[in-house]
Amino acid sequence: MTAAPAPSPITFPHRHLLGIDQLSPADIVSLLDLADGFVDINRQVEKKLSTLRGRTQINLFFEASTRTQSSFELAGKRLGADVMNMSVGSSSVKKGETLLDTAVTLHAMHPDLIVVRHHSAGAVELLARKVGCSVVNAGDGAHEHPTQALLDALTMRRHKGRLQGLTVAICGDILHSRVARSNILLLSAVGARVRLVAPSTLLPAGIERTGVEIYTDLGTGIRDADVVMMLRLQRERMQGALVPSVREYFHYFGLDAAKLALARPDAIVMHPGPMNRGVEIDSDVADGPQSVIREQVEMGVAVRMAVLEALARNLPNA
């Protein structure tokens, strides 16, 4: 086993990670610092740590997600925890059990950490109030996805050397995106300039009051940006009169090389995945030299290890 990185001098004063909203800028920085150390460990041959030995982690996914669930699973295992995955297809939730009954049942199994994804905003917080262990929000409705925002920030910081003063354009379906909301909170907290780029139908009401700049034209919105973050557009959006067609969406809001040329020459391109190539992003850009999309996945494991460890420090008997 590898030696754990030296514990960060800053304590993490939270029992759960439910959202970026609860974090101070100092909390964010200490999580990113911790994660930086795990990146190095994850690149070694020997990746296994013992920080969470004896701990039980349950990944409770009410909404399917290969990427996030496996990232959390790997993070827990590398820290030495016993990890169990529960997905909705194989659980009693399908049989009509309420969220709170599920929480009580799980609680009786004495887990130390529960990682939850749910399709309803606020569901993770509701569950957190009913269990005795630490809860990590892995995405609740269109509310928050804090570990995604943290991994995005880590990726940006490693490329740009800083977060403060960066111009970050978040583009696409803001309306339905928890990734966008967590990113807005995090980036604003650390002093980055956030721009949102979307057709007005995909912008939630009142978003302009969160201190962001709004653009309905991609070219103007990403001009001189340091970071261009594309969001996934669900194809179902065509039915609800939000967007007319893939053709029109890609024409105006799809990121291709010509539009990307308007951003800073050293701008990085990000995407939380899974990508819709030819809808919000062109393959040339997704696989191009400015793309850091694959690196985001790598940062995801490191950030989740940092979150799990920070929470575990506050667990009883720790």
């Binding site: 065509m238 039915q239 009169a241 007319p244 067609s245 053709r247 029109e248 024409h251």
Partner: peptide, 15 residues
């Protein structure tokens, strides 16, 4: 304004 005037899906107003 909507595809085939179906009143449900908006047409490609930009294009």
């Amino acid at each position: 304004l909507t595809k085939d005037l179906n009143g449900v899906e908006i047409s490609e107003i930009g294009l």
